[in-house]
């Protein structure tokens, strides 16, 4: 393998296209270090990044990554334009059967409105902020495949504490993802997922829209438009401080021919039902109030569709959805919905 490699690719995603150019210096200092530079130019997002990766000799799983990045993004569901410039430092290490990441990052974020007609609560979020945070992620993955597993458990717990290493954004964020898979006769698989998250801002300032959770869309709660659930102002979705989402899937290899390599291997049909809720919390209500608020005004949808596995990293879904539990303001996708992504509920 040559020491310097270059790459060029184009990507088409959710209503956007982009082009990426990258360069990679493998084994830079002779101990499997890697220096990666990439630039991506898209219709909605432009980003460039530089990262340096160094594993511990003899234990590739234990490594450090240092990154520099500049990402410009547009979020039309909330009329926000965000520019992030920052540095990050990751330390990855395995402990028994779990993988851990400790990450420190400092990000200068600039938020602005996408258009003159953005709602006023979004306009009020405009401005500069500096988030400096320490985060810890733990992953347990006992599945037999990341995209279409037939058995096993996946658990990811992520916590982020911002504001104690500088910056003017202070919060504690907890997030959790759980997936259980179970084999059934005839190659069917029953898969259930549960996601949840909580954001607690410290101090006088309420949470920033860039830190809040968004829910809805073909990769989370199917049957709703991308991030179009929960608190809103005019036509902009504002995100929430707490959420939960759950999904139940029945995957079957029928009618693509179970067990046959090739076609039947990468296609599945599935029946699904998914539900969830997203809300903002005002911190005077206590635990009971929060739980009851997350339990009321439920959003849920069911449907069926086809899943296509792309390698072992991504998947495409074409579903027919019936959004049933819909609340005022939500934008639904009643009928055919297409989804592409790497992380699915």
């Amino acid at each position: 393998m040559s020491a310097l490699t270059g790459s060029y690719n184009t990507m088409v995603g959710n209503n956007e296209g982009s082009m990426a150019i990258g360069g990679k210096l493998s084994n830079m200092l002779g101990r499997a270090e890697r220096l990666v530079a990439q630039f991506s130019y898209g219709t909605k997002e432009t980003s460039y990044g530089l990262s340096f990766f160094k594993p511990q000799t003899g234990c590739f799983e234990r490594n450090i990554t240092f990154g520099l990045f500049d990402v410009k993004g547009q979020f039309p569901w909330s009329s926000v334009r965000e520019v992030d410039r920052g540095v990050s430092f990751d330390f990855n290490f395995p402990v028994w059967r779990t993988r851990h990441t400790v990450r420190w990052e400092a990000v200068w974020r600039e938020l602005s409105c996408l258009s003159r007609t953005a709602s006023f609560p979004v306009r009020e979020e405009s401005g500069h902020s500096l988030k400096s945070s320490l985060a810890h992620t733990m992953v347990v993955d006992c599945r037999d495949s990341t995209i279409l597993p037939s058995k096993g458990v996946y658990l990811k717990v992520n916590q982020e504490l911002a504001g104690y290493t500088g910056g003017d954004i202070r919060f504690l964020k907890e997030e959790m993802e759980l997936q259980l898979n179970r084999s059934l006769p005839w190659g069917c698989v029953l898969s259930s997922s549960l996601w949840g998250g909580l954001l607690m801002p410290f101090g006088e300032r309420p949470s920033c829209i860039a830190d809040r959770f968004f829910l809805g869309g073909p990769t989370t709660i199917r049957g709703f438009n991308m991030y179009s659930i929960g608190p809103y102002a005019e036509s902009d979705f504002l995100g929430g401080d707490a959420y939960w989402a759950a999904g139940l899937h029945l995957y079957t290899p029928l009618p693509f021919g179970p067990g046959r390599p090739g076609f039947g291997d990468i296609f599945r049909t599935h029946l699904f039902i998914n539900a969830g809720n997203l809300c903002s919390l005002d911190y005077g209500e206590g635990l009971r109030g929060h739980v009851s608020r997350l339990g009321s005004c439920l959003r849920w949808a069911y449907g069926a569709g086809v899943v296509l596995r792309l390698g072992n990293i991504a998947r495409l879904e074409l579903n027919y959805c019936f959004p049933t539990g819909v609340q005022l303001g939500d934008r639904i996708c009643d009928g055919v919905q297409f989804g592409a992504g790497i992380r699915f509920l």
Binding site: L111, R116, R123, E124, S126, G127, H128, E234
Partner: peptide
């Protein structure tokens, strides 16, 4: 009085008025 008034303003300059749905 808002310290982020400049970023909030559609033209990037202060002051601005918020009247009804208009800025």
């Amino acid at each position: 009085f808002r310290s982020s008034a400049e970023s909030m303003s559609p033209s990037g300059k202060v002051p601005f008025i918020h009247a009804g749905n208009h800025v």
